[in-house]
Design a protein around this nucleic acid. Structure first.
Lengths: 144, 144
DNA sequence: CGTGAAACGCTTGCGGT
DNA sequence: ACCGCAAGCGTTTCACG
């Protein structure tokens, strides 16, 4: 695999693209001190290397009707993760992120639901999954 | 405040912009069945309404040298959150996300560090913060 | 990496539904 | 209020040095 060295130009480009993913190569180039073409080639390279995973729009979840967000810790019986957990995460659309972790729990899910009743239902589905012994939830009150 | 209703056109536009935040209004319009101009005006409106928070580049953290990622639960003395927690989250650059939550813990932080020693140091800073009585960490092993 | 030129996309005013 | 059209301008793309 490549050493993947990033210089200051790359880091500047990345920082600006995180702030504004639609900034033009022309404007970006002016800021970091490169021509438009050179800037585009850098960005193409960063994408090809996987440094930039993708460009995306950040959406306000409440605008789409997702008013509840919660971290759900997963405790599993025996040796279940991560194969069974991946299946669980993919089979439930309300799970928007999933991780295996060290510590007391075996996994952490980020769950989004439209309301409390919906969340309760999703939690039931998770609990009934084979291999899951119990869960521990923390509903998000605010983002800081 | 506005009712903020989104129609199918809006939802299609949003879905595509999440997948590719740099897709041109022309291509987007062809896909959803609108002219370039109408598409741009929709996106402008969604941004003005706050449905689209921003456009951003998703970066692979390991490419920037952040090899450790952990969820850190915060347990506080008395009534500390969320004012003190906001200050804590902003004062530590390794904290990339911060939430106040219901349940046993008062807050959850997402911390990124360059290695185990660095993470240990950051954890020490968090623990020494006034109002923080203890922490409980889960280091991320894999993303699913 | 930069330059130049052709292709393409963006932006805006306007008229229509 | 929303659409499409069209013109002018800015940006992207690529071959070349």
């Amino acid at each position: 695999m490549h050493p993947l060295r990033l210089d200051d130009l790359d880091r500047n480009i990345i920082a600006r693209l995180v702030e504004n993913g639609r900034e033009s190569f022309a404007a970006l180039g002016t800021r970091v001190g490169l021509s438009t073409a050179a800037t585009k080639r850098r960005v193409d390279r960063l994408r090809a290397e996987g440094v930039i995973r993708r460009f995306t729009a950040e959406i306000e979840p409440t605008a789409l009707g997702w008013t509840i967000e919660a971290f759900v810790e997963l405790y599993c019986e025996g040796r279940v993760p991560p194969d069974g957990m991946r299946e669980l995460a993919l089979s439930i659309p309300e799970v928007s992120e999933a991780y295996t972790v060290t510590g007391e729990a075996d996994g952490i899910l980020l769950v989004r639901a439209s309301d409390a009743a919906h969340f309760e239902k999703v939690l039931g589905v998770i609990r009934n999954h084979p291999g899951v012994s119990r869960t521990r939830s923390a509903v998000v009150l605010s983002h800081l």
